[in-house]
Structures are given as structure tokens and as C-alpha cells.
């Protein structure tokens, strides 16, 4: 993918300043602007409404939710109490957190190293390998599950966090993402560091990593989300209740003989909270990070 030319800042700023003064007063421009606001408002409403619905749901009884009640109720504490008596929340949160955090750190380390290397040290063989990896990206996980399970069973690792985390750590998508982002990494920085006598691993750790922190922030969100929401593989490989993640537990609640909607929605809010928090913490860096990936 090609890099875009550098901006001629002064000309651009002057032009948009000019445009800014001219814009006010033009009825067509104003109409268009109004349309843009309407469009974006609708999009934002549609995007956010289900969240509102979910939060309203946590305050209503199961019966009210089924009737489609869309206003706040008073059952919030009952729902919370039911949830906490039925689910060992601390335990499942701990499991989810360990899996998601350790998984994210390891994925960042291993996959960014590989992405960096694929871009920085190009060779014919490595290019071929990269092309092959892109093809493998498309294989549905369901197809790999049985052989994977056999491997972990032979290694006596079934029902461990290791078994959940390890297969996700080398992520082709994240390698791909870091390779794209590395294209924007100024090679002069590397050359300068080499002249200063830094070894390759030092360049990666002390130069590349700090410069690319936005890219890492964006990747953190993507990987954390994927790990936190991972369903199929943890379902198969985690056997005992005390090792299960919040995603598995909440999902099972929905298929009880007598599903308690209020309690389930309380659980889904709880299960969504950590990814939301991570997103809001890293949000500014996230957009910058995505920017790097598409240059």
C-alpha cells in the first residue's frame, strides 16, 4: 500500500480558512450540513440504543422485559442479588481477567515482533510464508478444534489457562496488522540507532516500541476484546466450573429451563464492562494506532 504525500501545511490551512469564511451563509452548504448532522445522529442513536436497552433491562423484572417495557424499573438490586447468588462472580471475573490480560500481553509481544520482522527484514522465503499465513487466516476455528484438543490432552494441559491462551498468542491478523503499521515506521530512526551501536532487539524494544505506542494501544483493544469474548475454544477446553470465564457462564444462563432475563441482562452488562473500560481508556491512542495501520 502506498504512502500518501506529505501535507503542504500552509497552503492547506489557508485554503480551509478561506473555505470556512465562505461556508457560512450559503443555503446549500447549510442544508448539507444539517443533513450530515441528521445522518450522524441517526447512526449514533442506532449504535447506542441497544446499550441503553440493556441497561434499562437490568432494572426490570424478567416478566416486564418480556412485555417489552422500555422504562427504568426497580428490580436492579434483585437482579444483581440473583446473579451473585447463582454465579461465583469473583472467580469467573478472575478467570476472564487472567486469560484476557496474559493473552493480550503475550499476543502483543510475539505477534508484533513477527509483524515488525516481516516488514523490516524482507526476504523471498519470508514473503512466501507471509502469503501462506494470510491464506490460513480464513480457516474456521471449528475445523481445528478436534486436533487441537488431542494435542492439549496429550500434553496434560486440558482445563488450564495455558490451553486457552496458547493457541491465540500467535495471531495472524495481529501480525498482519503490525506489518502494515511498520510500513509507517521511519527507517531513519532505525539507521540512527544502528549507528549508535544498538543491537536489533534493543532497537525493537527501545526505539520501535515507544514510537509505535498508538499502534500497540489499538492492538490492545482488538486483542483484549477477542480474548475476553472468546467462546468456542474455552468452552471445550475448560472443564470445571471454577475455571470458566464470564462469557461462558453468562451464555449458559440464557438456556436455563426458566430463563431470568433481568438477571441475564445484569450479567451481560457486567461482561461488557471491562471491554468498554479498556476502550475508553485507550480510545484516543486507538484512532492514532489505526492511522498507522492503513498508511
Amino acid at each position: 500500500m502506498t504512502a500518501t504525500p506529505m501535507t503542504t501545511t500552509d497552503a492547506g490551512a489557508a485554503a480551509s480558512a478561506q473555505a470556512g469564511t465562505r461556508r457560512s451563509g450559503n443555503p446549500f452548504a447549510m442544508l448539507r450540513r444539517a443533513l450530515v448532522y441528521v445522518l450522524l445522529s441517526i447512526a449514533a442513536f442506532v449504535s447506542v440504543f441497544p446499550f441503553f436497552w440493556m441497561i434499562v433491562g437490568t432494572t426490570n423484572t424478567s416478566a416486564d422485559i418480556i412485555r417489552g417495557k422500555a422504562s427504568f424499573g426497580s428490580a436492579f438490586f434483585d437482579n444483581a442479588a440473583t446473579f451473585f447468588t447463582q454465579v461465583d462472580a469473583l472467580r469467573v471475573f478472575w478467570n476472564s481477567a487472567v486469560i484476557a490480560i496474559v493473552g493480550t500481553v503475550l499476543t502483543l509481544a510475539i505477534s508484533s515482533l513477527a509483524g515488525y520482522s516481516f516488514e523490516m527484514f524482507r526476504s523471498k522465503v519470508r514473503e512466501r510464508i507471509f502469503a501462506l499465513l494470510l491464506l490460513l487466516l480464513s480457516i474456521p476455528f471449528a475445523a481445528l478444534m478436534v486436533p487441537l484438543f488431542v494435542m492439549f490432552a496429550q500434553a496434560k494441559l486440558v482445563n488450564t489457562y495455558v490451553a486457552v491462551i496458547l493457541p491465540t498468542v500467535a495471531s495472524i491478523f495481529i501480525i498482519f496488522y503490525f506489518r502494515q503499521a511498520t510500513k509507517a515506521f521511519p527507517s531513519e530512526l532505525r539507521d540512527a540507532a544502528k549507528i549508535d551501536g544498538l543491537k536489533e532487539w534493543q532497537i525493537f524494544l527501545y526505539v520501535y516500541l515507544p514510537v509505535m505506542r498508538s499502534t500497540y494501544a489499538a492492538a490492545t483493544i482488538i486483542i483484549f476484546m477477542a480474548n475476553w469474548n472468546n467462546y468456542l475454544w474455552p468452552l471445550i477446553v475448560l472443564q470445571t466450573a471454577e475455571n470458566k470465564t464470564i462469557t461462558l457462564i453468562v451464555s449458559a444462563l440464557t438456556s436455563a429451563y426458566t430463563p431470568d432475563y433481568g438477571m441475564i441482562l445484569f450479567g451481560t452488562v457486567l461482561a461488557t464492562l471491562p471491554t468498554l473500560i479498556i476502550f475508553f481508556l485507550l480510545q484516543r491512542r486507538f484512532v492514532e494506532g489505526m492511522l498507522g495501520a492503513v498508511k
Binding site: 484438543f149 486440558v158 482445563n159 471445550i236 472443564q239 466450573a241 451464555s251 449458559a252 440464557t254
Partner: peptide, 23 residues
Amino acid sequence: DSASQDDIRAKLQTQLLAGSTDG
């Protein structure tokens, strides 16, 4: 009793297919 019936079937079937009895 923390898994749904579908989940139990998937787990049982995977492990029996894998010939693994550990879990």
C-alpha cells in the same frame, strides 16, 4: 451445572472424538 445442554454435548463429543478422557 454451569454449562448449557448444547455446550455439554459439544464438550463430550470433542473429547470422545479426540479419544481423550482427562477432562
